[in-house]
């Protein structure tokens, strides 16, 4: 049976998260920034599932009927719920923004100050 070290999942998650951060910092299109935020959320989800599985494997060696690690996967479920709600409101804000200033360039957003 092949065991994949949890380190690999940590590195994958860190890499995905960093790519998301770089995307947020480098792009000017508000929709792409939003998509990079989704990418970061998913990186965290992968890590939560990996840790949940890791704890389950450790507990399973003692007790075959254990349900250790269920909470981690439920947290991922709730993160998905919150992300779906967030996307709805965020895209509505972007559409409203586009209707007002006819662009989704975030550099135009500094006029929100006035």
């Amino acid at each position: 049976m092949s065991l994949i070290p949890v380190n690999y999942y940590i590195f994958l998650s860190i890499a995905l998260f960093t790519i998301g951060v770089v995307g947020v910092l480098t792009r000017r299109n508000a929709i792409i920034i939003f998509m990079c935020i989704e990418l970061m959320l998913n990186a965290v989800n992968v890590l939560l599932v990996a840790f949940s599985k890791m704890h389950h494997v450790a507990a399973y060696a003692m007790d075959k009927a254990t349900t250790t690690g269920t909470e981690g996967q439920l947290f991922v479920f709730f993160i998905m719920v919150v992300a779906a709600a967030e996307v709805t409101v965020g895209l509505a804000i972007i559409v409203m923004l586009y209707r007002n200033i006819h662009s989704v360039d975030i550099n135009f957003l500094n006029r929100l100050k006035h």
Binding site: L3, P5, A50, M54, Y60
Partner: peptide, 10 residues
Amino acid sequence: GAINSIKGEG
């Protein structure tokens, strides 16, 4: 720590 893949436990 390591993660078992599909087969078997969990």
